[in-house]
Each structure stands twice: as structure tokens, then as C-alpha cells.
Design a protein around this nucleic acid. Sequence first.
DNA 1: GATATATACATGCGCATGCATCTATCAAGC
DNA 2: GCTTGATAGATGCATGCGCATGTATATATC
Lengths: 149, 149
Amino acid sequence: MAGSPVHHDVAACARAWQTLRMAHARVAERLEEDLERECGLALNEFDVLLYLRSHPDAETRISDLLNAVTLSQPALSRLVARLEARGLVVRSEAHHDARATAVCLTDAGAELIDRAIEVHAAAVHETLTGKLSDAEQAALLQLLSQIGA
Amino acid sequence: MAGSPVHHDVAACARAWQTLRMAHARVAERLEEDLERECGLALNEFDVLLYLRSHPDAETRISDLLNAVTLSQPALSRLVARLEARGLVVRSEAHHDARATAVCLTDAGAELIDRAIEVHAAAVHETLTGKLSDAEQAALLQLLSQIGA
DNA sequence: GATATATACATGCGCATGCATCTATCAAGC
DNA sequence: GCTTGATAGATGCATGCGCATGTATATATC
């Protein structure tokens, strides 16, 4: 402790981060397992389909999806290509911009994401919300929001 | 809400998970950036070096490290190989088991992890613990522990 | 309206990961 | 001592990612 110029309690920092990491990992692992097993979807794929499901009327472009996913643009391009190859979405030219690509859910994609939403909620409930009272949930959300803000 | 057999408030589940995910992402992103930039280390590599630093006397085997990292055994084998190629650790035969590989920090590795620990703590402090009062930190840890348990 | 720059997306490439499998060694049972 | 099964770790292979770059289109400047 002596030599270093600043030291905001290294041990406390490590502990806080480990705890957050562990909690996140628990939920994420279960969620990814369930989505993969039940729907053959990765988390990022789920996010993309969910975004499309939530914006049924708007013309969704790759760049719109980019805001909904923590992913690089090339990675997103390929992800959409994979979804298209599976028949879950279709790509087409955007209306007023020939550079852009419009992405649209197919019927099969809509069906799948609806099932996936149920799977998602069940997994989150069992690993996260189900372990906390309503008051605890509210408190946790409040605290996490301060960090994520 | 009507048709589905069970429904533990899909919206609340989604919100809770998104918040946890966002908070985790904020900290992780910053942490990964700093460790990479300052020390050239990925998070998993940091974890391995930290474990070795924390167990200086014991003979550490690949299988021991496996418990300290969220990584498959093959991935860990390769990670250790990369660290060895960079001169941060050395692999040698374990004492009483010719199947096992003992992994040991080099001086360069020890120096690097010591710097990395500082970087780590600073990043976590700025993105996590620094944003909360002591009481809030305690409350957060308590809640997250319930999830991670 | 021709040139220059910015934007939207796709592709080449290298890297880290996981799964399945392989090799080498240990431990038991006979 | 030899066979059988378990264990430690390494390697082949396929997948998804990010970075750098390429191509096509749009927009701004002259």
C-alpha cells in the first residue's frame, strides 16, 4: 500500500467486480444455453430478432440494428447474413437510399422470436428476478442503473 | 399475457436483465480497454496471471487454473502457451505426475501483473465502486451475491 | 455537372473460443 | 506385468469476432 501513488482499496474493487461478473455470468450462461437449445439462437441473434419484432412498421437498416447490439458493423452484417440463410429474415434494398440494406422478419423469424422471448423470460426469471423480492429488484435496478448510466 | 401458460412479467425480466447486462458491459469494456492498452492483456490472461501471483508457493497446474477462469480446457492450454511465448510464464513438468504441466510466473510476468492489478483497480474504481457510496456498494454486493450464489 | 468526401454495407484476414478427439500417464484389478 | 479405465493436457477443426479495407452510393463543393 505504501509505494503506489493512488489506491482506492484494490481488494474492494476486485471483490465488487468479481461479484458483478459472477452474477452476470450466471444469468448469461443459463440464458445462452436455453436460447441455443430451444431456439438455436445466440444472444446477439436474439437481440437482432427482438429489435425487428419491436419495430414492425419501420424500415430497419443494418445501421439501426447496430444501435441495438454490442457488435461491430462487419460482425452484424454477417450475423444478419446467417439469419437470412436460415430463413429468419430477408434483406432487401432500402427505399430512399440504395446504399442501405433493409432487414425484415419472415414469418418463420417472427414465430421463432416469439418462442425465444418466452424462453428468455423464463431463464431470466429463474436465475435473476425469481431470486429477489420486488423491493430487492427495485433496489438492484436502481444501483445498476447508476453504474450503467 | 392471455394465451401463455406461465408469464413472470416478461417486461420486468427483460428490464432487469438489460440493466444488469449494461452495467456489466460498461465495466467490462473499460476494463478490457485499459488492460489491453496498458499491459497488452486480455481479461482471461489477467485472471490467469493473477491466480499465479496469488499462489506463489503452490505448484499450479493447468487444471488448477481452470477453476479460476471461465474457459474451456483447450482454450486455457492455448492461453498459457501464448503467455509462455511472451515470456510471462514458464511451463514445466509437474513433480509427482508426469501427465500434468506446472505453470509458473516469470519475473517479467510478475512485474506485468503487478502493474495490471493497479490498472484493474483504477478502472473498476472509476466505473463501478467510485459511482457508489460505501453503503450502496455493500447493498449491491449483497444483492448480486444472491444471484451469483 | 464534375470532383471530393462521407456513408452504408460487404469481404479478407487473423485471432480466440468451443467441441471432439488424440496421446501420454496414472491407478486398479487380475 | 498386463489389461482396463480414468485423468492431464495438447491438437484438429469449425465458428464468430474485430480490424482493416473494398465497393457502391449519396452528398457537398466548386
